[in-house]
Amino acid sequence: MLQRKDLLGIKDLTTDEMSLILDTAAAMREVMRREIKKVPTLRGRVVLPLFYEPSTRTRVSFELAAKHLSADTVGVSAGASSVVKGEGLLDTARTIAALGADVVVLRHPAAGAAEFLSRYTRASVINAGDGMHEHPTQALLDIYTIRDYKGTVEGVTVAVIGDIMHSRVARSNIWGLRKMGARVRVCGPATLLPAGLDSMEVEVFRHVEEAVAGADVVYALRLQRERFRQGLIPSINEYARLYGINQERLQLAHPEAIVMHPGPLNRGVEISAAVADSPQAVIADQVANGVAVRMACLYLLMRRDDDDQTYH
């Protein structure tokens, strides 16, 4: 069982905890395939998605997950909330308590925001992305998708291509994949590779062709256009030419390789339209699996009556 109040990152999850989340997600996937996609498990619970950064799919995914489990959910996004009025996280924590939220799903531009909030609220906090730090449910849904297609994660070779430095998706995935025994390769412009990749036990490649060769999974990261404005890459076109996943490069991978992307897609930049629409792309599965994984997390973090005694 998950012996924790919060889900803040992949780095401090054990492999047993990750397996439990993935197995539970498989059961949730069955619920999602039903005509009536609803079970009464979290009836009367309140899930509060709190998004201090724009996001559509992660927020919708969490809200659907909460609704499938019969929890009540009210989304709060940056533009509409008092965030723009300068309310600090501590005041937000008081508001959460007053509203009686059981779970807060927090997306915030500052690394460590979820961890900070978790210390000041009795509610469970799920990190839905904190700055350049972690995005644990994205990594879990990606690992679920890999396990679903490949049968296992152990020994699977995953090539992660793109802006590793600024990507919390990459960071959480690398930690998670390594824990589950996958071989991880990374490739991207030198300006977008962080220091300390060696300590994350990944293989770094200079050329995307080498990174992709024989890989079971090709994971294209989204390129933020501001990296160009920051002068970290010479041009978007050059990035597409050197690192974009096109059919030619995909042919170097294992014949049954799958292509993944966290979305939203920049077609023609990190991934060509032909690859994105090819049967090898499993991007739609990632989205569907995301709801199941988040249902699993909400279920497994559900507070039980006797937890109050142990909570300090």
Partner: peptide
Amino acid sequence: YQPLVYRT
């Protein structure tokens, strides 16, 4: 304890 959820 937290009961494991199995697939229907």
